[in-house]
Design a protein around this nucleic acid. Sequence first.
DNA 1: TGAAATGTTGGGGCG
DNA 2: ACGCCCCAACATTTC
Length: 485
Amino acid sequence: MRTIVHWFRRDLRVADNTALAAAGRDASRVVPVFILDDHYGDDPGVGPARFGFLRESIEALAKGLEGVGGRLVLRPGPASEALPRLLKETGADAVYANGEIGPYPQKRDAAVAAAVTAAGARFRLFPDELLVEPADVLGGRAEPFRVFTPFWRRWREIEKRARAAAPADLATPTLASVPIGRVRAWKDLPPQPLRPAGGESRAARELTAFVERRLPRYAADRAHPARDATSRLSPHLHFGTVSARTVHAAAVEALDGGAPAEDVRRFLGELAWRDFFHHVLFHFPRVAEGNFRPEFDRLPWKEDPGGFAAWTAGRTGYPFVDAGMRQLAAMHWMHNRARMAVASFLTKDLHLHWQAGERWFAHGLADANLANNNGGWQWAAGTGADAAPYFRVFNPVLQGEKFDGDGEYVRRWVPELARVPREKVHTPWTMTREEQREAGCRIGSDYPAPIVDHRAERAEALRLFERIRSPRASPVKGKIPDPKS
DNA sequence: TGAAATGTTGGGGCG
DNA sequence: ACGCCCCAACATTTC
């Protein structure tokens, strides 16, 4: 009678779980464990939103495992001590887990591999996190792609792995486990009524609703943040409450159900971006610490605590930017179009380091994921692999007018502007005194005037970015504001 | 998965 | 009929 430990990390599901399925096949008893490490990912500044989502997902996982005869065990970390102890208690001869890309998990897993091996057991990692593995998508001369489009061309040709069967009977023995309610990090969480909810069955419902109702209009609607058009799966993909394979398969199968090919193609493109950014992090782990493109180390980012505070508070005076930042604060999630606009504003209108924005997002977003968050920020700042060119500066007014033409998104998240007429909802500072009175919104008191002049700051950004071309200029280090302070 | 500046074209008003 | 100007619409270039 063989026993195997399945170590859950960011794969908090029973269905289509590669390592768990393998453990179920290879052993008659499976011990599913989640370890309360000081880290469960390697992002700086894990905030309450992710802890909240994680807690819900773990509670749901415990229930889900009961359905297949499993009992989830919670143990304090570090994993390199908890796992050998568990091996001894259960007589298990192996630890199975799904692999994770990132500097922290890879270092952690190396230490665990050593500890498990020293305890006389086997440590096995399974490919599960991504649709395609880094080793499977290489360009000419076996070099990793640094540009998305050729990556995507290759990515589409690769057959995606089949989904793993759900385990039949895990037959977990009874073991000591930390009660979830006893965990300090989870005790004092503020209420988060609008945060995406965690859990495997929740993810499955989101996926079904997305594929049936929103995917068929995805291409046309996805860039409009007021429209309910996106998958909302980002936190689920981060925590593995749904697998990327299941999402991919559902989208592909939707083609047979009549979903237009263009909509499906665009959505698959987003899944490919996720793989791309993970591959970039795998091949170039230095991106976690700084610019992918070293010439940007010369860029003189500014320090502006007041500007940063206005940005975080959603009080920049640019409605589209402020709506995004307030959506983040309220929902612990932000629409991607708004993410690009607020990132452009932080880096190119306020000239603040993209890492300040990355940290704020990591702390605030339920879906914050090192590879995607870092990739997104370096894309927006122009410092990354296949990044937007540095001279691509978003105009917050035009972004609003293009993607929120009637101002619905702005009005939803910036209630001060609820009664501003559509023509001026993205430029409220152009209202006359009379118009301000009628809209019940005085600029400068009810809602701020723009804290910077976009036209002037765009020009300033172009001037600052010039420096990346002159090799003489010296690096300037700016301090990065701490989101918790 | 930009935007602004600059260039080109063509229709219409007008003398 | 013609040249001229204006300007919107679109294309191209530049940042």
